[in-house]
Amino acid sequence: MAGTTSSSRPRPTAPHLQVYRPTLTMTMSIAHRLTGIAVYIGTIVFVWWLIAIAAGRDAYESFLDALGSIPGLIVLFGLTWAVLHHALGGIRHLIWDTGRAHTYPWREYLARANLIGSLALTAILWAVCYPR
């Protein structure tokens, strides 16, 4: 970068992520991004579901078998949470986009509500829908 130095050795960059105390809003921002990426990949499961139904009875049965297995259920549960967390995170960002709730402690409440809300909704959805 600009500025000249007498030494030929390049200047060091001051540490950043390594020394920054994690903030709740930063952590939730990372979570928003990771859940977004998870849902991005998870759309494969969604489209696989649709294609399996379109392909017929047998294909649908094998789709249900795969998703009904333990790893399948874990993926599905994780995906449910990721979708809900990302959706609620989107609402949080929409509120911030209007310039509201930037001040302490509202921004922290909003970030916390995002996490608690997504966990609660996931639990409720699974409790209601899980086949008995």
Partner: peptide, 13 residues
């Protein structure tokens, strides 16, 4: 691909 494949399946069903 996700959008079109999904839409094709929905329409076929």
């Amino acid at each position: 691909v996700i959008g079109v494949a999904g839409a094709a399946a929905v329409l076929k069903i």
